[in-house]
Amino acid sequence: MLEASVQSGQLAAILLMAVALGLDAFSLGIGVGMRSGMRLGYMLGISFMIALFHMLMPLLGLFAGHYVGILLGHVTGLAAGGLLLLLGGHMIYNALRGGEGQRIHPTAFLAMLLFSLSVSIDSFSVGVSLGMFVDDVWLIVVSFGIVGGLMSILGLLLGRQVSDKLGEYGEMLGGLILVIFGIMFII
């Protein structure tokens, strides 16, 4: 059984927040998974990195404090939205050019790092908020990481399945999904 410091209401709230934050990773994973040539090993690498960022960002938020969260609230959304717009726009551009241009491979370390950061950045603000009323930091961090990692691999796998059926339009649709989410983060 869990420690007495975590009440059932707190545990339910933590798990609901973990799922809500993981939905970004799931949805965006579908878009990235639609990119042709995504291998399972790379998908696992991206999901592992997302899980790490889903643990690191709320941990940083928990320790950063209330004022930093208020100050950076809009900036984090703009940064995440901008990164997604760039990645999605580039995917659409390459799909329209028939893959002639230089591609940003989501399997490259820097691309995986930027993607993981963009889907996990909202965890920072949630971590700041949770730090005010929850004492069990490790439960929050581990829950967010496990749920974020699992939801991202499910999204990537679903995206790969959809891409196989859509053929050459899969990358364009994936880029469009990322652009839409980027705009939603900015608004």
Rank of each mutant, 00 (worst) to 15 (best):
M1V: 14
E3K: 06
A4G: 09
S5V: 08
V6H: 03
Q7T: 14
Q7P: 05
L11K: 05
A13V: 03
A13E: 08
I14P: 11
I14Y: 04
I14K: 04
M17H: 00
G22Y: 10
G22I: 03
L23D: 02
L23Y: 05
F26A: 08
S27I: 09
S27F: 01
L28F: 01
G31W: 03
M34Y: 04
R35T: 15
S36C: 00
G41C: 00
M43H: 06
M43D: 05
L44D: 00
L44F: 07
L44S: 07
H54T: 02
H54Y: 11
L56V: 14
L59N: 02
L59T: 10
L60M: 13
G61C: 02
H66D: 11
H74N: 11
H74W: 00
T76M: 15
L78Y: 05
L78S: 06
A79M: 07
A79R: 02
L85V: 15
G89T: 02
H90V: 09
H90N: 14
H90K: 15
I92M: 14
I92C: 07
Y93V: 04
L96E: 02
G98R: 00
G101K: 14
H105G: 09
H105W: 04
T107P: 00
A108G: 12
M112F: 01
M112R: 15
L113F: 15
L114N: 01
L114S: 08
L114Q: 04
F115H: 10
S118H: 00
S120G: 15
D122A: 09
F124T: 13
V126N: 00
G127D: 05
G131N: 02
W138G: 06
V141W: 04
V141I: 11
V142C: 01
V147W: 06
G148Y: 12
G149Y: 10
I153C: 08
L156N: 09
G159Y: 04
R160F: 05
Q161T: 13
S163V: 01
K165T: 10
G167T: 06
G170Y: 04
E171I: 05
M172E: 05
L173N: 03
G174R: 02
L176Q: 01
I177P: 09
I180R: 04
I180D: 00
G182A: 10
I183P: 00
M184Y: 08
